[in-house]
Design a protein around this nucleic acid. Structure first.
Lengths: 202, 202
DNA sequence: ATTATTATGTTTACAGTGTCAACATAATAA
DNA sequence: TTATTATGTTGACACTGTAAACATAATAAT
């Protein structure tokens, strides 16, 4: 259809793809709009036809990653139908694994200040078909209900459950992924041990 | 001694102080060397006589904050002499409190990529009189030893203990401080409940 | 005491950044 | 066929970090 000499066919998608690649290679700090434009063989202001600012492009990239992340959590849940605690443990494991394998994504999703902008300006992330942490919160609420019936030692307060479970895996992911916690052995094995050894959720 | 019209007496200290203030007010992203210089009534390259780069100044500021943070952890330990578990719980509480009260410090200490540079180029932070997390790790090792004797349910593996304890408080601090976890009640009360209700460290 | 050196400022310059305005042309709608 | 919109371009601006060349106060060496 389009004259591919002049128009670029699908610049928007390419900006996201190449932008993500650049982010992986050079890291969040050195990420620059002009570099992405250059990689796409396009003038330095061309991205402004598709994104209203640099942050806007970064947010689009973050949304892309958010999808993959959520998919990974969903797979963890599907591994243990009808076993809420195992679902949560497996989600925690996937959570940490995801960010150990992609340290740059952690910055993008949680450590930059854009996340709150995502929530404000891009509510699709919280409302649309692929809501982040919906899977997680659903499991937490199921567990809360279960704990209310079975009188185990664990709490039935969903806030308490959510903050402690999420906090633990979030913290471990960040500490390991940013190399603040150093350990000679296999990090993921240690995480698995922590999540499944009994002290966590029972 | 010095002619205060020309020379600035103690620019280095003032750069750190005013820089920290600027960081508090405008946040990490908008922090700029030239702004700090202007606030100190000095030309925009004057800071280079005291810091070899922008990152270098930021690191100096981070060291300053690191000291305060460590002091807060030490106070928590001192509250419970001879009770390792309570020390760790109280440290966790102080940990979260510190970053809830100073969200910008969290970025500075843990979320920027400079921390690893601190560890590499500024080993004083890890070696000198005020080593970060030394207090924490000491307590963990004491707990590990205790758990080896008393056959409680808790693990005696110091790595497991360190990662799970540190991970939990680190994660909660970040989630709350960055407003990823939203809650109507008092955050610190919830944290205290999580740390002291029994499921954490027995 | 004079002189050389160092510490600590200054101005100027440069490349890189995000962003805006003005313009040009391809694709599409009227 | 014409008007409008979508999508690209070039050029400019203010701002950034940083280096070089220079100036002077404080200090060390002679």
């Amino acid at each position: 259809m389009t004259n591919e000499n002049y128009h670029h066919e699908n610049l928007k998608a390419e900006l996201i793809t190449k932008g993500l690649k650049l982010l992986d290679e050079e890291g969040y700090e050195k990420f620059s709009l002009r570099k992405v434009a250059k990689v796409c063989n396009v003038s330095h202001t061309a991205p402004y036809r598709h994104f209203k600012s640099k942050d806007d492009l970064i947010i689009a990239i973050a949304i892309e990653i958010q999808h993959r992340f959520n998919q990974s959590l969903q797979e963890a849940v599907d591994k243990y139908p009808n076993d809420t605690k195992s679902q949560i443990k497996e989600m925690g494991y996937s959570y940490v694994k995801f960010f150990i394998e992609n340290p740059e994504y952690l910055r993008l999703l949680f450590l930059s200040d854009l996340v709150k902008n995502i929530k404000n300006d891009y509510c699709e992330l919280l409302e649309d078909g692929d809501p982040p942490f919906r899977t997680f919160y659903n499991a937490i609420e199921r567990l809360s209900a279960e704990n209310q019936n079975n009188a185990t030692g664990s709490s039935a307060d969903p806030n308490e459950l959510a903050l402690s479970c999420w906090g633990l895996v979030h913290g471990m992911a960040i500490l390991i992924s940013k190399k603040d916690f150093s350990y000679d052995g296999d990090y993921l094995e240690l995480v698995r041990k922590i999540l499944w050894s009994g002290t966590f959720l029972n």
